[in-house]
């Protein structure tokens, strides 16, 4: 598509500039031939306006011979040739136009001086037009490249977010299935209950994984579904305390944000301690901030350092979604590990 013809606003602006230019040509002709204003205008204005459209063809020349493809010297010779040819054709048309005007007595003498002016004007305008079009093309290409770059950045980040979306630890599933298998002989009802809980949990987490953000109460339900399953596995080793601020329930959070924290608390806290302990889960709202925290006991035997992929994952997700408005921090105090997420409040306004 032609960058000027295809855009009404640009075309209008372009033609306005050419009306100015045609007045200039009229003036040059008026003084060169010393003819009356009306004659000079009748001759020069339509002719120049027509040239405005001829000049648009420079775009196709520029497209056919992009910069950097031909040797510069050949390109200059070529473009000069095209400009000269176009100008000569234009001058022939000018002579024809002058003949048409003669019966109305609006023609001009069209001496060598006028022809020289037309030649100079034609060459100058056409060469300027070529330069202008090269500029436009280069600019558009740069813009396109920038947009492509931007688009690919967005795509890359989306892909990253999808990847980062916390995934359920498969060992949790295998261990749960093992518990179900163990329950089948002595406690069939328990086995069935656990199967249903596990199915619920998997279905919910699959569903939520496709959402961008969900109300906290849904994430909360997912976490407690998870905890109920773990409660069967860990028995008395696992105690749960939870506090969900009523004002926080409707706040929107990215799905599977709290669940990995709860999972960590189980795996590294309860799972590593002989007597187990209490997990404390809290969600509070302070004005425009949502505070989520999970606390678990830590065993006194030094635990092998974990690389904490889950936690880095949470941090990257937070910074991808909220920039510097969200924080993650964790600390160990008096044999208790506490992980906290602070994020800006987003609400559903339905």
């Amino acid at each position: 598509m032609h960058p000027i013809l295809s855009d009404k606003k640009r075309l209008l602006l372009y033609l306005l500039v050419w009306i100015g230019l045609s007045l200039l040509v009229t003036m040059l002709i008026r003084f060169a031939e010393d003819s009356p204003w009306i004659n000079a205008a009748a001759f020069a204005m339509p002719l120049t306006m027509m040239f405005a459209f001829v000049n648009l063809s420079a775009y196709y020349i520029c497209r056919a011979f992009p910069l950097g493809k031909l040797k510069l010297i050949y390109l200059i010779i070529l473009l000069a040739g095209v400009a000269k040819l176009t100008t000569i054709i234009w001058i022939v048309i000018a002579q024809g136009w002058n003949a048409v005007l003669q019966p109305f007595d609006w023609s001009i003498p069209l001496h060598t001086a006028a022809l020289m002016i037309l030649y100079a004007v034609g060459m100058t305008f056409y060469l300027l037009s070529l330069a202008g079009h090269y500029l436009i093309i280069t600019f558009e290409q740069a813009q396109k490249a920038e947009r492509r770059e931007f688009e690919s950045q967005i795509l890359a980040r989306e892909a990253e977010l999808r990847m980062l979306r916390a995934q359920i630890d498969p060992h949790f599933i295998f261990n749960s299935l093992n518990s179900i298998s163990a329950l089948t002989t002595n406690d069939p009802a328990g086995a069935r209950k656990m199967t249903l809980l596990l199915a619920d949990f998997l279905r919910q987490s699959l569903k939520l994984a496709h959402e961008r953000a969900i109300p906290l109460e849904e994430e909360w339900r997912l976490c407690f579904n998870f905890l109920e399953i773990e409660k069967i596995r860990f028995g008395n080793r696992l105690n749960i305390e939870s506090r969900l601020d009523e004002k926080a329930e409707r706040c929107l959070v990215p799905p599977m944000l709290l669940q990995p924290l709860v999972e960590n608390a189980l795996k590294h806290g309860i799972g590593q301690s002989v007597d187990g302990g209490t997990i404390v889960i809290e969600a509070k709202r302070h004005d425009l901030q949502l505070h989520l925290s999970v606390e678990n006991p830590v065993d006194d035997v030094p635990v092998i350092k974990k690389t904490g992929i889950g936690l880095t994952n949470i941090q990257s997700r937070l910074s991808a979604m909220y920039g510097s408005d969200a924080h993650f921090r964790s600390q160990i105090n008096d044999h208790r590990y506490r992980a906290e997420i602070i994020l800006p409040v987003e609400e559903n306004h339905e």
Partner: peptide, 12 residues
């Protein structure tokens, strides 16, 4: 095994 159910199954 730290899980009672898992121990129970092997015993069984």
């Amino acid at each position: 095994d730290d899980e009672k159910l898992a121990r129970q199954m092997i015993r069984e």
